[in-house]
Design a protein around this nucleic acid. Structure first.
Lengths: 349, 349
DNA sequence: ACACCGGCAGCAAGCGCTTTCTATCCCGAG
DNA sequence: CTCGGGATAGAAAGCGCTTGCTGCCGGTGT
């Protein structure tokens, strides 16, 4: 029924071993033989059996990419960049045709673990985990154990935009969320804002905490006292920003600025402000984080912190493929760049 | 080194066959035995070898999802929905833990083919192709041949948001791009517009052609003569919309409306208009297509055609998993819904 | 002229799992 | 008390490929 290596071998009048070597190109084969084999492959329309080859060679050409939400451009952009580097398909590099497995964890710790197991089961060549981690001790330990096991089995593990996981052998490219958030809030403070609302992400995530800490560090440094009512938590999406902003306005109508955990949230905040009859930035300034593509098109354009998502992803991909040296200490911190645009201005007096 | 089935069997004092049966749960095993095996699995921290099992069983638990650009929410949303349905992980359904392989074709026909081969090599359980196809006869034939081969090998093939591929055994969920585009332009014509610019997608894609045809059908029905200068082609992204709009304005400053191939393009168009000192919709109306999440947050909110991306993806995913009956004739046409919002208005007189 | 060696091809032993077929055990029926 | 049969467990034959090792052949060095 289906064509096997042996069929090709028979047709090319060589042994299966030779066909295998031609296909893998890691053993000397005479040019004439190679050509004969290639012709047979073509004529029979032979397609290698991946599982069989993975089993025999004890390696596979699968690379896993874990993301929180593939529908969110934040992850989409990173995934795309990672994939471009690992896919021999796009990368151009001959021989290494790798298949990227993008897994949607939905931010759920269990799913993260499940996917890691599935990847381990497939003997993935590498795994890249993106996005912040959940701050739950048992879960963090479980993930760390899993990563360690993967590393032991020869799977390269890279964390992209995620805090380092000590003693797991994983390489980490971490975003400086704290620093970026701090500079952003400093910018707002510099403009004269003193009453700033903050819409944070979900409570238990590292990214949420780091950005919030940066924000607070800036406030503290400027000796601005923070009112606990000024912080609201919610998911990293537009709707959350919308609702949180209405809530903030309810709690303290005198706020002159709203800092959002990310750009999507900021967009929702803008919508809420506008509907409340407030002008941006004349009445209230708004700031986001990430600088996703649509942020520059917001009206007014969003002041935010640009994270080099594509670059980071590309680098993570190359490291995962062993095509780039891991950073010293296996940890690299990637800074964000403050993008000052129209949504932030001097507060009304 | 690594734990195998045999190790588990030894520890549980049973044969490898029994362990396999416990793990697959498709053969009667005494409760006490099962428990003993499960305990051994746990104690040894055993992880099944995917390739080996795929080889022996001649099936795999991989499902391929082909997208043009994972960084584009249009595809991200579909991919996410598909994945949610196939992943036993999230779906809750026991036993069927499937791994989704999201492949970025970048819209390139060769890569599409390469990925299909890779998926065939992995003996994927199913493949879902999303987005429009390239209208190139040789390539279309090659893809069709590949799909046929996949179907023969038992891989379920579903097209989501893509035109049907006759005689390939593939199920198609197609978007009614033509109808949606037509209704959209009819809306604009109804408002009184007579000089409408159209920013089309890349020339050779089915989606591009269908949307353009719908637009023209509306014009023809209203007996509005179209000036060839009013159509510009470009990629499906923001920048393209920006540049194309400037070009349209240069060609004919009297245009009262700009219809974009999709929402991202429309956003770029808005930016260009604004920078040109034109108000939306007072001076120029703008319309998009897809109704991506950010479209409602544009200022003014974008008039567009909503495509039920998530629903379509979910359905495609279920069909791919054999959990839902394919539509009669293996083809379903999914209509878009016209969303009239602030970016379209009565033209200036 | 002979032993030696490098280049290339083949043999055969698995890789770790699934599954068919067979063996065993214990039950109730005759 | 014996026999048929349902319920389980095991033996073993692969699944299709990779790879260490062996073998063959023609060219070299001396």
């Amino acid at each position: 029924m289906t064509v096997t290596l042996a069929d090709v071998a028979a047709r090319a009048q060589v042994s299966p071993a030779t066909v295998s070597r031609v296909l893998n190109g890691n053993y000397p084969v005479a040019a004439s033989t190679r050509e004969r084999v290639l012709r047979a492959v073509d004529e029979l329309d032979y397609v290698l059996n991946g599982p069989a080859s993975a089993l025999a060679a004890a390696t596979s050409d699968l690379v896993g990419i874990l993301v929180n939400d593939i529908a969110d451009p934040f992850f989409g952009i990173m995934a795309s960049a990672i994939q471009a580097e690992i896919g021999g398909v796009g990368g151009g590099r001959a021989g290494g045709e790798r298949l990227a497995v993008v897994c949607n964890t939905g931010g759920s710790p269990e799913r993260e673990l499940t996917y890691l197991t599935l990847l381990q089961r497939q003997r993935a060549a590498a795994v890249v985990l993106t996005g912040g981690a959940v701050e739950d001790a048992p879960h963090a330990a479980a993930v760390a154990a899993k990563l360690r096991k993967l590393a032991e089995a020869g799977t390269r593990v890279v964390l992209c935009g995620r805090p380092p996981a000590p003693d797991t052998g994983a390489v980490a490219l971490t975003f400086d969320n704290r620093g970026g958030a701090r500079r952003l809030t400093e910018h707002l403070l510099g403009l004269g804002h003193r009453r700033l609302g903050y819409i944070a992400g979900p409570e238990e995530r590292t990214t949420t905490r780091h950005r919030l800490e940066g924000h607070r560090a800036a406030l503290a440094a400027a000796q601005v006292e923070e009112d606990p009512r000024w912080t609201v938590h919610g998911p990293y999406d537009r709707q959350s920003g919308y609702e949180a902003t209405l809530e903030l306005l309810r709690r303290d109508p005198s706020l002159t600025a709203v800092v959002a955990a990310n750009d999507s949230v900021a967009l929702g905040a803008c919508a809420a402000l506008r509907e409340s009859g407030l002008r941006i930035p004349e009445d209230v300034s708004v700031a986001g984080f990430d600088d996703l593509p649509f942020s520059v098109d917001a009206v007014p354009a969003l002041t935010t912190v640009r994270l080099p998502l594509a670059e980071a992803g590309a680098r993570a991909g190359r490291i995962a493929m062993g095509r780039e040296e891991p950073p010293p200490g296996a940890i690299a911190v990637i800074r964000g760049e403050l993008m000052v645009r129209g949504s932030s201005g001097v507060p009304r007096v």
